[in-house]
Design a protein around this nucleic acid. Structure first.
Lengths: 212, 212
DNA sequence: TAGATTGTTAATCGATTAACAATC
DNA sequence: TAGATTGTTAATCGATTAACAATC
């Protein structure tokens, strides 16, 4: 299915198309043009058409794109229809936030377990998940291999945990710990969510404005 | 101080230099070369030197860069020494996570207040902050104008809140709500943290691996 | 001094934008 | 058919990489 190399720039725009097309579909909009999409998302019409043509054109000349079919093409490309499995490691405030409020299914994942090191938290029930001990990760993996692990645990434990998960054979890690993980050489995809990097960028921008 | 235009690519690397240089300083490392930095961060030595030369060279030929002075230059460029003020709006799980665990000072901010709409949460004390009602935002701003607002509230309230904050005159918004905010035309800098975009990117990558 | 490493210019590469023929 | 809008090629722009003279 995936023939040629798709650049990171394109890939990072796919979720934005997905989100907006979903919005259009909910509103009952049937068709959309590259220029309308571009306007809504802050891209250019050329860029939009180039992006879609990475995967083979989904449009119709003189008409534009059919919202539902474009949405399902994009969903298929991202893989959100695949029902990957995910576990979360570290059930502090952030872990709770994700388990309680985050729509994993919308992103192509099922959350199958949660683990924590603290005896106070192990056993806690959140929604339909009961927090297990981190000691049980390996045995749980053997019974229920998961595709990715979500790291929301203290900095100090991250490197060890990442190694352990790599040995187990996870496909990816969603890393919230502000430790830069690079496991590409071991075939593990890592997506780092660096809150601090994001806030520092904003810091730069408002400092900048101050100086103008 | 800020003379020429600096590209977004460069700006987004600054926090990474900052983090790694801080690490080096803590370890007591006195000097570092562009190639060592590049290796640690996954950049190229050329890129590192180009980046620093956007702001005027900080190095010494034949020697490299002095860790502490490079760190403080970069800190000054980002503006993390500026003590901007921030308030958080929405004190659910994610809001709690940030208030409890996030190192705002490291990013150049002081958290001065927290607001929530729910009577159950208003009045709660977290660290040295007492949660106020969202109704008090305007009057609080008049007494204690803040530079940025952190949005960790439900999707449905975001657009209204963003407008209100824009009217008040905030400089920036750190947006965690998965609603794409664009307020650049009103002079408000927005940094969107889209969890779903990030996880979808990982979804794409592990789906990709699956097909290889 | 010789060795190392920067600062900076030039070359390359890739991504974005523009243009327009194809076609619904 | 005429109008609209795609798919696709070519042009432009910007970012990354390479190279090397300057110099500590």
């Amino acid at each position: 299915m995936r023939e040629r190399y798709i650049s990171d720039s394109v890939i990072r725009r796919l979720p934005k198309y997905h989100r907006y097309l979903k919005e259009l579909e909910e509103r009952g909009t049937g068709r959309v043009s590259s220029s309308a999409l571009a306007h809504a998302l802050g891209f250019t019409a050329s860029q939009v058409r180039q992006d879609f043509n990475c995967f083979g054109g989904f449009g119709q000349q003189g008409y534009g794109y059919n919202v539902s079919s474009l949405l399902s093409e994009i969903a298929a490309i991202i893989g959100v229809n695949k029902k990957h499995s995910a576990v979360i490691i570290g059930v502090g405030n952030l872990g709770h936030a994700l388990v309680n409020n985050f729509d994993f299914v919308n992103c192509g994942f099922n959350l199958t377990a949660a683990f924590d090191a603290s005896a106070d938290i192990v056993g806690e029930r959140i929604g339909n998940i009961t927090v297990k001990s981190v000691d049980d990760i390996d045995s749980f993996y053997k019974e229920n291999p998961f595709d990715i692990a979500i790291l929301t645990l203290p900095r100090a434990c991250v490197t060890d945990m990442a190694q352990r998960l790599t040995r187990l054979g996870v496909k990816g890690i969603w890393n919230f710990t502000n430790v830069d993980l690079h496991l590409e050489e071991f075939g593990v995809k890592v997506e780092n969510v660096h809150f601090a990097d994001s806030l520092m960028t904003l810091c730069y921008e408002i400092s900048d404005a101050k100086n103008d």
